[in-house]
Amino acid sequence: MSEKVLEIEHLVKRFDDLTVLNDISLDVHEGEVIVVVGPSGCGKSTLLRCINALEEIQGGEIRLKGEAVSKKSRNLPEIRQKIGMVFQSYELFPHLNVLDNITLAPTKVQKRSREEAAEEALALLSRVGLQEKAGSFPRQLSGGQKQRVAIVRALCMHPEILLFDEVTAALDPEMVREVLDVILGLAEQGKTMIIVTHEMQFARAVADKVIFLDEGVIKEEGDPDQFFDHPKTERAKEFLRTFTFERKHSHS
């Protein structure tokens, strides 16, 4: 088996008295694509936010290549550079154009030269079909374009792992495709990723492993075909049924 990139051990996350994640353990290996599915409020997004130390954790441990990831880590900025995150609502900097959005962190945080960062940014932009948008401002882009820029922004930091937090949930249906295609491309390149999504067809296509999260615990994990065709738990069956539609009475 390839090297472990991320290790999560007995992670517990509580908001005051509410336990959102309860004893989550998960290993992510180099090049692996993990898809996390589950009903709203099951803790999927919180899990990603914990991995990036945007949330404080109340128990357990998260390690990236052996280094502890925690809000209290002294070298948190260095660790976070290695964890790319793409958000549901893009979170591009509204006052910076596309190119500056992408190169801000590489130049200011990683202290790379502006020329080198811009060159890579343009190359990545052309890979996602947005090279001519380098000088545009976020407000001039469609949702799908913004999200592709956000993905490029994360990629340009050369992260060890990429986290996708329901990145198509705010998009119009016809824009979902262009974003998912980009993510599929990244999977083919062997990027290590954790993807939270409600797009079940996509989940099945992209995942090496599916995690089914419900009420803050991992109820099922395994091979995508196995999970989608023969879910083991009653809860997972019930969840998957919400994505299929049947007419009870046909017109005669």
Binding site: F87, E91, F93, A105
Partner: peptide
């Protein structure tokens, strides 16, 4: 959310003030 995005890329607090908070 924009501040979190900056944090997630490893910016320290001083960089957030100068490069994100004040410009935005």
């Amino acid at each position: 959310g924009v501040i979190e995005a900056a944090q997630s890329m490893g910016t320290n607090n001083l960089q957030i003030v100068w490069k994100v908070l004040l410009p935005e």
